[in-house]
């Protein structure tokens, strides 16, 4: 699979190529790893209806991962390079996406999808006018699926927050997830990140996206009577971040076991390529 439009990869110098690739890796890896975790809820969600709804979201995110990885193929990588034979320490997803779910902790799934989807909406907006055409061209398709995700998360926040036990569990999920959610706005590398913005591959810097995100999620969570673990003046410092931020390739042990799991069949069968069923995912 490769993008159909003439890819302007050739027009990029080495620094620019690196910047576009970092941007695509953080997008693709977030979606892929988030989806891996969401699929853990399949056949385990509280009701058949919620099972269908979350698995639908997982499939959307997986489809988005495929769209972003497809653009990385324009740089000469194939799917094994991007996933099944890739060094797990080069994945650039936020550590929030790799956190395992405790069995039955539906409040984690709801808070996590909420925090993630608000961030995703903002970053997609900041890609609408990307100077890199192939990225710009794929934003609309993804956005058209995202509205429902946020609607799903908010409807569940509503329902759980109106129950004492649900409220308590939501608070625990917020306490646990919030520091990891902040890694969504961390750079893969400060120099490369500066190039992403200078070249307008993404038109907003991460700290502005992060501020917008905070001004969105904090009042919303507070409106449900939830405390958000950040300082009064709302400034975020490195002290608020978890030890592993993911973006720089530094991950938790849970990532290693997840990576081993999803590459297991590929390794066991001694595969050297990954089957493609759909020629052009865009």
């Amino acid at each position: 699979m490769s993008s159909t439009a003439a890819a302007p990869v050739e027009d990029l110098d080495d620094d620019q190529r690196e910047a576009v690739q970092h941007l695509l890796y953080r997008l693709g890896d977030d979606e892929f790893v988030a989806a891996e975790r969401y699929t853990e809820w399949q056949v385990r969600a509280p009701t058949l209806e919620s099972d269908l709804a979350l698995s639908n979201i997982a499939q959307d995110e997986l489809g988005h991962a495929r769209l972003w990885y497809d653009l990385l193929q324009d740089f000469g990588y194939d799917e094994p390079d991007l996933l099944f034979e890739r060094d797990p320490e080069t994945f650039r997803h936020s550590t929030m996406t790799e956190l395992p779910f405790e069995e039955g902790d539906w409040s984690d799934a709801i808070v996590r999808t909420y925090l993630y989807d608000v961030a995703e909406d903002l970053r997609l907006e900041a890609l609408e006018d990307s100077s890199y055409g192939p990225i710009r061209d794929r934003v609309g398709k993804i956005q058209s699926e995202e509205d429902y995700h946020l609607e799903h998360a908010e409807s569940w926040l509503d329902r759980l927050a109106s129950d004492d036990d649900g409220q308590r569990r939501l608070q625990e999920a917020v306490d646990r997830l919030f520091p990891y959610a902040l890694t969504l706005f961390e750079p893969t590398d400060p120099d490369v990140e500066a190039r992403i913005v200078d070249n307008e591959y993404r038109t907003e810097p991460l700290d502005e996206l992060g501020e917008e995100w905070l001004s969105n999620v904090v009042p919303k969570l507070e409106s449900y009577g939830l405390d958000v673990p950040i300082s009064e003046d709302g400034t975020i410092t490195s002290a608020d971040l978890p030890p592993e931020i993911g973006r720089d390739g530094n991950h938790m042990d849970d990532w290693e076991s997840l990576y081993d799991d999803f590459t297991q069949t590929y390794r066991d069968l001694g595969r050297t390529e990954a089957t493609t069923l759909m020629e052009d995912p865009s």
Partner: peptide, 25 residues
């Protein structure tokens, strides 16, 4: 369900996840 994760390609994974979802449906 465990084979959604263990699928050896993204397209297989998507098809598997969709299949499990169909069955719940």
């Amino acid at each position: 369900r465990p084979f959604i994760r263990q699928s050896p390609s993204i397209d297989r994974k998507l098809a598997f996840s969709a299949k499990v979802q169909d069955e719940i449906g």
